[in-house]
Design a protein around this nucleic acid. Structure first.
Lengths: 381, 381
DNA sequence: GTTATTTGGTAAATCGGTTGCACAAAAAGG
DNA sequence: CCTTTTTGTGCAACCGATTTACCAAATAAC
């Protein structure tokens, strides 16, 4: 029926209909536009100025509480602002003062996988809380692949989107970090720089020491066949923890077995693969030093599948003390690296740097603490 | 030895040392300042214009790939941009076009606790991936208390920091949502609005149905004393899930025992408290419907402490299917609400809305799926 | 009672873009 | 060959703040 109705219409009718329709649309849009404009066309500094009978510049000075303005005028202007519901436009402000009050947070490329690791939310939480306190906003890069990540950083830097950047990872020859250094863009690193250590402000744990201590613990428990399971080798944190591990072995005069050193991504799945490999050896390790709690999770899962008991057959120590390290069965002996504090400190350092250009380069070492739980036991065999 | 060295120095020596140090610092600062300015004084559209022998407006048109510019000119201008390493200043651009290419993400106040729940990182991941694809940036609110949260939203809205907002929670009479509605600011809600449902674009699961289904599952397993453990009552998700639970009980003609309905925050600790209470009854529940995986975690922990076996003594079903619901012992039977997809869809809806003002109000229902695992079992006693 | 200083405030330039309008030159039409 | 139209650019006015330089009135100094 409807079809028929349309079919009987002349072309002319169609056209005129269209015209009506279009004009209707335009009208509707204008109406919306008007309402929208009402919102968008917010009150400006000029409106306030007019209302308070002063110049815009005076209003600006009132905003920044400039002492050159008399209290009487200030009061008057503030009242006008209040009445008009004035809020300064950040874009205009940023343009004029060439600053945003925002800091960028860069996750390792592919937030896809990284946001999976509670490390990042936790450090974000620390950064966020500091940002909140100091009135900064947070811009987070959302990863993608390396190229996209880089593009995002460029957008942040070149586009003046942020005043400074926090890099949530440190790896060797990271193009993003090199870029930031080259551009002399203020940034701080969470983790230890691969090189140019003295020129980069960074916040880190003493991972070498932590790893050494925890390895020593295993050694004290009588373990000698200790495996190391770390993230990709280009991450500095991985190599640092490996170093600590080696130092402890050396000090205890235990030969280093390269087969016992495995690298993969900080994912749950990597842990699983590694376990399969380690226990295919005729003399498998009696203890594993895992460089990340998420990975340990995979390890534990896989051990269970393989029918290997932890800690009876193999001891595990881990890193990060994510909340999940308490809830695994067995709960994990892990190094609490104080992630939240890493976030706080990095934000703090960055903001200090932003506030005064000649803030010196800093290194902040956040203390760690080993949490002894149930995934390790003394070797008695 | 070192101490002595310092002590033997005269005051004068100290002072002069300091002076040298300071002047050195200043010199260093000037050098940095110069370089810094070099960076900040980035190439502008005018520089490009000059170099390409065109007007700034032309350059601007080249950037937006305006068809009115000839290809020849475009090529020339692009070359100039390339050579000068030109990148447009976002602030200026935003000021002119009255838009940022950014969307704000609001967590429930106190990200403190919310970032603890992997739900948020996961939904953030979805949003981020969509944002990346469409060239939007992400602004995340970092919580604090209610007031601070509100302030941040105001800053985003009034300050023109973002084009639109995604609210990651829905609760009744949320001042922030009311504010956004009042201001006619584009936003989408993750969750179901408490009221004005037809006027708000939102993305949600059918929580009532999901809850009903999972309750029915428990009933089918023979359970009749089923407890419900949900978040604070002002969260719509809590009440929806409670509704589904009640509907299922009613349909099965099981009387509703108000003592078996407990509300608290979506925290691990809340789960623990609730368990204590539930098992202080003379007739404790044989099954618990928990509205959040994190909470379930607390429940499981507490059960273990109390020596109550799951699923032997009590069955548990949960919501969200966080990765941790697989690794708990027992693994959790839980409703997979497809968090990532919630993120994707909410970002998509918002961006559509931003691209065309008269995009209609939408409701997107993300499907759920029950994951049957080991925390439930048939009641045989 | 002049002149020198403060004090309080304004006008206008600037930040780095976008965009409506005017206006030549080139192409099309008559 | 002279209009008319199209095509390609430039001019100038914004966007909404900050900030420099300058000025008038009030106060202080001589």
């Amino acid at each position: 029926m409807i079809a028929q109705k349309y079919c009987t219409r002349s072309l002319f009718k169609w056209l005129s209909d269209d015209i009506v329709f279009i004009s209707g649309l335009i009208k509707e849009r204008n109406r919306l536009q008007a309402k929208e404009d009402e919102r968008v066309m917010a009150v400006t500094i000029k409106d306030v100025a007019k209302k308070a009978n002063v110049a815009p510049s005076t209003v600006s000075r009132v905003i920044s509480d400039n002492p050159r303005i008399s209290d009487a005028t200030k009061k008057r202007v503030r009242k006008a602002m209040e009445e008009l519901g004035y809020h300064p436009n950040v874009n205009a402000r940023n343009l004029a003062i060439r600053s945003t009050q925002a800091i960028g947070v860069i996750m390792p490329s592919s937030a896809e996988t990284s946001l999976q690791n509670p490390f990042f939310p936790e450090v974000l939480r620390g950064i966020g809380s500091m940002a909140l306190e100091t009135g900064y906003s947070l811009y987070v890069s959302t990863g993608g692949d390396d190229t996209q990540s880089f593009e995002e950083v460029k957008r942040m830097v070149y586009g003046n989107r942020v005043d400074g950047i926090i890099l949530l990872y440190s790896r060797r020859n990271d193009p993003i970090m090199n870029f930031l250094v080259k551009e002399k863009f203020p940034f701080v690193l969470v983790g230890k720089p691969y090189k140019r250590e003295s020129q980069i402000t960074y916040v880190d744990n003493d991972n070498i020491q932590a790893s050494k201590k925890v390895t020593e613990h295993l050694i004290e428990l009588g373990h000698r066949r200790i495996a190391y399971l770390g993230g990709t080798t280009d991450l500095v944190v991985t190599t640092d923890r490996l170093d600590g591990y080696k130092q402890a072995l050396l000090a205890a005069e235990i030969p280093i077995n390269e087969k016992f050193i495995i690298h993969d991504e900080f994912l749950r799945s990597s842990g699983r693969k590694a376990v399969e490999k380690l226990f295919s050896f005729s003399e498998p390790p009696t203890a594993i030093l895992v460089a990340d709690d998420m990975m340990s999770l995979g390890v534990i899962n896989m051990l269970e599948e393989l029918g290997i008991e932890c800690p009876e057959d193999v001891s595990i120590t881990s890193f990060n003390n994510l909340y999940l390290s308490e809830i695994t069965r067995p709960s994990l002996t892990t190094v609490d690296i104080n992630i939240y504090s890493l976030g706080i400190q990095s934000a703090k350092s960055l903001i200090e740097r932003l506030k005064s250009k000649d803030e010196p380069v800093k290194r902040v070492i956040v203390p760690f603490e080993i949490k002894y739980r149930n995934s390790t036991r003394a070797l008695t065999e």
